[in-house]
C-alpha cells in the first residue's frame, strides 16, 4: 500500500510542520517514506510545496509523477489548484477555503471556488476560523492535518495524534494540547 501526498501553501504558512508530524507517524509505524521539501528563496511569501510519499514497500523517486498523487493537502485554495496535473483521477483535495492574497493578479474568488468544487473529491474548510474557535489561532495547519486524516489511509488518527504529542513535546504540554485540539476539530469537520 502507498499514499502519495502533495503538501502546499504559501511560504510561512507552516506546511513543513504538517510534513514533520506525518513523517514522525510514518517512521513510528515502520513505513517507508520520502519527503522532498522546498528550502531557500521561494520560502519568502512565494508558493511552496512538499512531495510526501508513504509506502509499505521501498520507494524509488523522491518526486511524485504527474497524475499519481492521492492527496493534495493545501493551506490555500489557489495553491491546491496549482498541482492539479499531479492529482490522480481518484485523488482527493483537502484545502483551506480562505484565499491568501499577496499578489495583484489573484484570480476571481467565485470562479476559483467553482473550479475547486468541480473536482470529484474535495474537502474545504475555513481552517483559520476553526483554529481560532478552538482557542489556538496558530493551529490552522493542525486543523488541516485533522481534515486530511481520514484520507491518509495508511496511518490512523491515533498514530497522528501520538506524533503531534512527540513533535510538539519540547514546546510544552499546553502547546501539545492546543495542537491536539485543533487536529481533533479538523477530524470532526472532515467527517461531517
Amino acid at each position: 500500500m502507498k499514499v502519495d501526498i502533495i503538501l502546499c501553501g504559501v511560504g510561512g504558512q507552516g506546511i513543513l510542520s504538517i510534513a514533520t508530524v506525518i513523517g514522525e507517524a510514518s517512521t513510528e509505524a515502520g513505513l517507508y517514506l520520502k519527503q522532498a521539501e522546498v528550502h531557500g528563496m521561494s520560502q519568502r511569501g512565494g508558493d511552496v510545496q512538499s512531495n510526501l510519499r508513504l509506502s509499505t514497500d521501498p520507494i524509488w523517486s523522491d518526486l511524485i509523477p504527474l497524475g499519481e498523487t492521492d492527496l493534495i493537502i493545501s493551506m490555500e485554495p489557489m495553491e491546491a489548484l496549482r498541482y492539479l496535473p499531479y492529482l490522480s483521477k481518484q485523488g482527493t483535495i483537502v484545502t483551506s477555503s480562505k484565499p491568501f492574497i499577496n499578489i495583484p493578479n489573484y484570480p476571481d474568488e467565485a470562479e476559483l471556488m467553482a473550479e475547486l468544487d468541480s473536482m470529484p473529491s474535495v474537502v474545504k474548510l475555513d481552517i483559520e476560523s476553526v483554529a481560532k474557535d478552538s482557542g489556538n489561532a496558530r493551529g490552522a495547519n493542525m486543523v488541516l492535518l485533522g481534515m486530511a486524516a481520514p484520507y491518509l489511509e495508511i496511518l490512523s488518527v491515533e498514530q497522528l495524534r501520538k506524533a503531534i504529542s512527540v513533535i510538539f513535546a519540547r514546546k510544552g504540554e499546553a502547546v501539545v494540547e492546543a495542537n491536539l485540539k485543533a487536529f481533533d476539530c479538523g477530524v470532526a469537520a472532515s467527517k461531517s
Binding site: 519568502r44 512565494g46 509523477p65 497524475g67 489557489m78 492539479l84 490522480s88 499578489i103 476559483l112
Partner: peptide, 30 residues
Amino acid sequence: TPDSVGKALGKESSATYGTAKNLAGRPPQL
C-alpha cells in the same frame, strides 16, 4: 523528473487533469 525519464523510457503518463484555469504565479517577495 520521474515524468521526463518515464517519457524517455516509453512509459505512459497517468496525468488526468490539465493546468487549472484560475491560477496565478506567486513569486517570492521581501
